[in-house]
Design a protein around this nucleic acid. Structure first.
Length: 826
RNA sequence: GCGAGAGUGGCGGAACGGCAGACGCGCCGGACUUAGGAUCCGGUGCCCGAAAGGGCAUGGGGGUUCGACUCCCCCCUCUCGCACCA
């Protein structure tokens, strides 16, 4: 037997080494393996240093599920890898004066060793690393698949530019107008960039969320829906009086069409320069001035949103239903990327249009009156009336009420040939170019005669040159390397230039779960047979911060690959779970606040099992954990450490007592053990680790009591250790093999089963209520029927006292838990 | 502003419409003994009471019900998403 004291610093490293020797966590690709397969995926790690508390929390949950499913008889795939490209690596490397590669690989080594020390059950044979040419070769392949089908394309468009990081960002990476990485206000800049045509998939991305409602966190589904932002309305055709140009605008409120008093173009709208020129020299100069100024000193997203600036173009738009001519403007508050880049101005019923009209002295015409309350008067309105109401001043539609009015106007527009029903999405195409060094080069060659030519697949990877000045700035760091840039066109053999941007790292992570299925293959990104074996992912664990970005992109790539016939499913992740954040003192941990707690020192001091259980026991997995409240005193062990101690002693005593001929295991303990198996199994299925642990604590306490009473407890102790295994893998293994003397790992053992008959208690405490108040508690057999319960209730002296001789008018019996008596008086 | 979620002891948190506060932390008292990051036993929602017992308690107010932390309505507070998307 091992030492007589629970000593995690001795136990845990010993098992880390032995598990590695035994190859315990290898997933089997053998199709003859009869076990059902289970793909337990944890969001892979960004190697920006050693593991932090967020990793410890997320991976504790993910690993517990992987181990639980394995014990339930599944062939589990539980891989890990490194999301290793990206800005933080570059910024840290610049700060330290070393190469991003060096910094990244050092962090990977450290994280790998920390994960091992924590006892994570990863199949290390499948490890991948997105900055490895053997991986990004296939990220480039993915790009080319999309490029070949027109799903990757380049266009000049307004983009989000981060002046600090010197790169463009995807729409999804702008949080509240700030750069996701550095919190710098993002500005608008017109640039030619690569996009993925995710908008083609908008409706499918929306529709396919529905089956996920039950297995994904509700808020994630909601956030995705909101992000895609489907709007129903009408597309209405306007004509420019002076030039005869016709164009469509999108509106969700066609019922306000009679209230149009002006018309606005986005800055980038193709008609703007033409109309400005037609408006005469003054108009042209004013327009030019605004456009040039905004190009030179771009507005931040927020400034643009709040601006009510605008220039009158002199031209007029013809309202298709009234024939009225209204003045045209160009203004930054209209966005080129949404709808058609032009809007009809209805100041009475749209707040932005209202403010613009006040700013530019434009008429306000009320065409919707609220059904209740004061009539809206244009001269006295302080804000737009953008709610429902009755149509007025609207020709044939006067008196028609919303919301039916919208449909009726659309119908009429269609009959008149002036418009049609239309749907618009908020979702924009995914901007994937980055003017930064540490990423996968975009595998395209620009040829003066052939145009954009994809690098032939056999020439991949386009290797990221290492000896490059990777400081951001200018066109892109790669543009400074002539050897990289100057190539011959693969199509015509003429002189050509490589694309010098790198891909957004979210491209790397949009398909990594497929690569795990075919690790190390150098002929394909993944083998469809391998993917069919494991995908879709059965359980995906990670943070909500990826609720939009990573999940949306992965879903898009999966659908695109499905359309290419490479995968059979349309959704990559069947079930998902988000861990809460680990915070400290009510705020996120941060260097500037000096409140960072790291997991590895805790692991060294109290053991990985204690670290993991502290996380899982603190509360529901998806709730935040305030570490200051959970472990207020760093010099004292977290509470679960004491329980592990007690468990150690109890199981040790239980293992030894069998020889001593103690009294047989009491029936009550056997029943509790069965009940605990039932309860813990249910809790684990629902990821309720905190209540599962509390049930194990109850069983431990009962075993300890039985031991003190000199009773046999070995069977119960074995069951306890089995259930402990997914939660505290080191202690469970030590107890299972070294203390209880079993052969083979507890992590390969079968999850215990229970007998429902034994799990039921033989007597229960029945509550007797009189007029809604609990008046007594009576022990009754758990199979007591209605009659027996009633008799037991009426036999109670205290119940009789509470009744005070009053007559019972109604009796509700819920055998065997409750009898509720209602007197006539009540 | 819109959308979602949450308010339970000193603290983290438990409770298929049926004993509110499981389990744990902390705290109080005790035991063992004395240097073990200890361990063990008892107590611990609030108020009255020596006790038995009684009363009050799940943000506030109403409702449904024999019975509400749980369901419905109104209000307050907090958290999180999205915020000029026409």
């Amino acid at each position: 037997m091992a030492s007589s004291r629970y000593d995690p610093s001795e136990i845990e490293p010993r098992w880390v080494a032995r598990w590695a020797d035994e190859g315990l966590y290898k997933a089997s690709d053998d199709d003859a393996d009869p076990r059902p397969r289970f793909y337990a995926l944890d969001m892979f790690s960004y190697p920006s240093g050693d593991l932090h508390m967020g990793h410890a929390e997320a991976f504790s949950g993910g690993d517990t599920i992987a181990r639980f499913r394995a014990m339930q008889g599944h062939n589990v795939l539980h891989p890990i890898g490194w999301d290793a490209f990206g800005l933080p690596a570059e910024n840290a490397a610049i700060k330290r004066g070393i190469h991003p590669k060096e910094w990244t690989y050092a962090n990977i080594d450290q994280q790998r060793s920390s994960f091992s020390r924590m006892g994570m059950s990863f199949d290390w044979n499948r490890q991948l690393n997105t900055c490895d040419p053997e991986y990004y070769r296939w990220t480039q392949w993915l790009f080319l698949q999309l490029f070949d089908r027109g799903l990757a394309y380049r266009k000049l468009a307004p983009t989000n530019w981060c002046p600090h990081d010197q790169t463009v960002l995807a729409n999804e990476q702008v949080i509240n107008g700030l750069c996701e990485r550095c919190d710098t206000p993002v500005v608008r800049k017109d640039l030619t960039q690569w996009f993925f045509r995710i908008t083609d998939f908008a409706q499918r991305l929306l529709d396919d969320l529905e089956p996920l409602e039950d297995t994904w966190p509700e808020r994630v589904v909601t956030m995705q829906r909101n992000w895609i932002g489907r709007s129903e309305g009408a597309s209405i055709e306007f004509e420019i009086a002076e030039t005869g140009d016709r164009l469509e605008v999108f509106t969700t409120r066609p019922d306000t069409l009679w209230g149009v008093t002006f018309f606005v173009f986005a800055l980038e709208h193709p008609l703007v320069t033409k109309l400005a020129a037609a408006g005469g020299p003054e108009v042209e100069a004013a327009t030019r001035e605004m456009l040039d100024r905004l190009q030179a000193t771009p507005l931040t997203n927020r400034e643009q949103a709040e601006s009510r600036e605008g220039v009158a173009l002199g031209a007029h738009a013809v309202n298709p239903v009234t024939g009225e001519q209204v003045p045209c403007f160009v203004a930054p508050y209209v966005l080129m990327e949404y709808g058609t880049g032009a809007v009809m101005g209805v100041p009475a019923h749209d707040q932005r249009d209202f403010e613009f009209a006040r700013e530019h002295d434009l008429p306000i015409r009320v065409v919707i009156q609220p059904e209740e309350g004061a009539t809206r008067d244009p001269d006295r309105m302080s804000e737009a009336h953008d709610h429902e109401g009755v149509m007025v001043n609207s020709g044939p539609f006067n008196g028609v009420r919303s919301p039916e009015s919208i449909g009726r106007v659309i119908e009429w527009l269609e009959e008149e040939g002036k418009g049609r029903a239309a749907i618009t999405y908020r979702l924009r195409d995914w901007l994937i170019s980055r003017q930064r060094y540490w990423g996968a080069p975009i595998p395209v060659i620009h040829c003066p005669s052939c145009g954009e030519v994809g690098v032939p697949v056999q020439d991949l990877p386009v290797v990221l040159p290492e000896d490059v000045d990777f400081q951001p700035g200018g066109e892109s760091p790669l543009a400074r390397d002539p050897e990289f840039v100057n190539v011959v066109c693969p199509r015509c053999g003429g002189a050509a230039r490589r694309d010098t941007d790198t891909m957004d790292t979210f491209v790397d992570s949009s398909w990594y779960f497929l690569r795990y299925c075919s690790p190390g293959r150098d002929d394909v990104a993944f083998d469809p047979a391998d993917v069919a074996r494991w995908m879709p992912v059965d359980q995906y664990t990670g943070g909500v911060e990826h609720a939009i970005l990573h999940l949306l992109y992965s879903r898009f790539v999966t659908k695109a690959l499905h359309d290419l016939g490479l995968v059979e499913f349309v959704e990559p992740f069947s079930r998902m779970m988000n861990q809460g954040q680990v915070i400290f003192g009510g705020a996120a941990m941060s260097k500037s606040k000096g409140n960072i707690v790291l997991p590895m020192p805790l692991v060294e001091r109290w053991g990985a099992d204690t670290m993991r259980l502290t996380m899982l026991f603190a509360g529901p997995f998806e709730d935040d954990i305030d570490w200051k409240l959970i472990a207020p005193d760093a010099t004292r062990p977290p509470g679960v450490y004491g329980w592990l101690n007690r468990t150690w002693r109890a199981v040790t005593a239980a293992a030894g007592a069998g020889d001593g001929g103690g009294r047989p295991q009491p029936q009550e303990l056997t029943r509790l053990a069965h009940r605990t198996v039932q309860g813990v199994t249910e809790d684990m299925d629902r990821y309720r680790f905190n209540t599962a642990i509390s049930k194990l604590m109850v069983l431990t306490n009962e075993i300890r009591r039985a031991i003190d009473a000199g009773e046999e407890t070995r069977d119960a102790a074995e069951v306890l250790v089995l259930m402990l295994a997914p939660l505290a893998p080191f202690l469970a293994e030590e107890l299972w093999r070294e203390v209880l003397g079993n052969v083979g790992s507890v992590h390969g053992a079968q999850w215990p089963s229970f007998d429902p008959a034994l799990a039921r208690e033989d007597t229960v405490t029945m509550v007797v209520m009189v007029d809604g108040k609990v008046r007594d508690r009576v022990e009754v057999p758990s199979d007591a029927d209605e009659v027996a319960c009633r008799e037991a209730a009426l036999a109670s002296e205290r119940v009789r006292q509470a009744l005070e001789g009053r007559e019972v008018s109604r009796t509700i019996v819920r055998p065997p838990k409750l009898v509720s008596l209602v007197t006539a008086a009540a």
